[in-house]
């Protein structure tokens, strides 16, 4: 699979993470994030934190080009995934999205059977066929720890599952495309503590084989699971550092205030 016309990032290549360079997103001329640059290290969990409206979601959605589908959004700058600028001229956007998975705040399973939810995208991308899609479905549902709960109702509706189970199904759906990067936008904010804990454990484990970016309002969660922290305010980077430094000895006064709960 190639991301662009030129052959870059073969399957055996060491993951390069995600590098954002001078990224600006404007909505009808008004900047939402301004000239953000950062390297999201490969095989690490990076938490994106900051007060509400600071541009966390906007940043996350520029990485898999979700803004393409919102009228009035203009993106400039570079987002480099596995050596390829995803905003480059000859980029295959669908392949970018195959490699960069996204999990949303609220579970949004497709109105199809549980099995089809997981198998649909791999079939569409030619990563699975009728013969082996069932194995893939089982593998992914097992990875997210949902297999035992749903194995007897694979052809039933996903809307009979609990909210937490639905979110795990959506995670399995995303993982079924073997992404190199996974973007999570407050994935546990609507979930119970047990499922939240379960998803946090999964994130740690998944970071062994992919780059994980997670937006969260929950600083305790960020400190539990993240290796690095990107702290934004008003569309700008305040501090980008290791989680350890951010939570114990941040360089910026505003980070100190945010960590101690005085901002946001």
């Amino acid at each position: 699979m190639q991301l662009a016309g030129t052959n870059v990032g073969t399957q055996e290549a060491v993951s390069e993470g995600v590098s954002v360079e001078g990224l600006t997103v404007k909505f009808r001329g008004t900047p939402l994030i301004e000239g953000i640059s950062n390297l999201f290290e490969p095989n690490k969990v990076t938490a994106i934190v900051g007060p509400t409206g600071c541009g966390k979601t906007t940043l996350l959605r520029s990485i898999n080009r979700m803004h393409d589908h919102v009228a009035g959004m203009q993106v400039s700058g570079k987002v480099v995934v596995e050596g390829v600028n995803v905003y480059g001229a000859d980029v295959n956007v669908r392949e970018v999205r195959r490699r960069v998975g996204m999990l949303f705040q609220r579970p949004n399973p497709f109105p199809r059977s549980i099995a089809e939810n997981v198998g649909l995208a791999p079939r569409a991308h030619g990563l699975a066929n009728r013969g082996n899609v069932r194995d893939l479905v089982q593998e992914q549902l097992t990875t997210v720890g949902l297999w035992d709960a749903v194995s007897s109702r694979l052809h039933g509706s996903p809307f009979g599952l609990s909210g937490g189970q639905q979110q795990l199904l959506c995670l399995a759906r995303t993982l079924a495309l073997s992404p190199d990067v996974i973007l999570l936008d407050e994935p546990t904010s609507a979930l119970d503590p047990d499922t939240t804990d379960h998803i946090e454990q999964l994130m740690k484990k998944l970071s062994e084989r992919m780059t994980v970016l997670i937006v969260t309002h929950n600083l305790a969660q960020a400190s539990r699971i993240s290796d690095n922290v990107l702290f934004l305010m008003k569309g700008n980077v305040v501090e980008a550092t290791s989680a350890r430094t951010f939570f114990h000895d941040p360089a910026d006064e505003r980070s100190r205030a945010y960590v101690s709960g005085r901002i946001g």
């Binding site: 898999n64 979700m66 589908h69 956007v93 669908r94 392949e95 970018v96 999205r97 195959r98 998975g101 996204m102 949303f104 609220r106 949004n108 399973p109 497709f110 109105p111 199809r112 089809e116 649909l120 995208a121 569409a124 991308h125 959506c170 759906r173 995303t174 495309l177």
Partner: peptide
């Protein structure tokens, strides 16, 4: 059809035709 279903389909890199046939048509 809720916007969230469109977004899920886009984020998975599904083509417009696949999205319409498999995701939007049932509801």
């Amino acid at each position: 059809v809720p916007r969230s279903l469109h977004e899920a389909a886009i984020a998975l890199g599904l083509s417009k035709i696949t999205t319409i046939r498999k995701v939007l048509l049932p509801p």
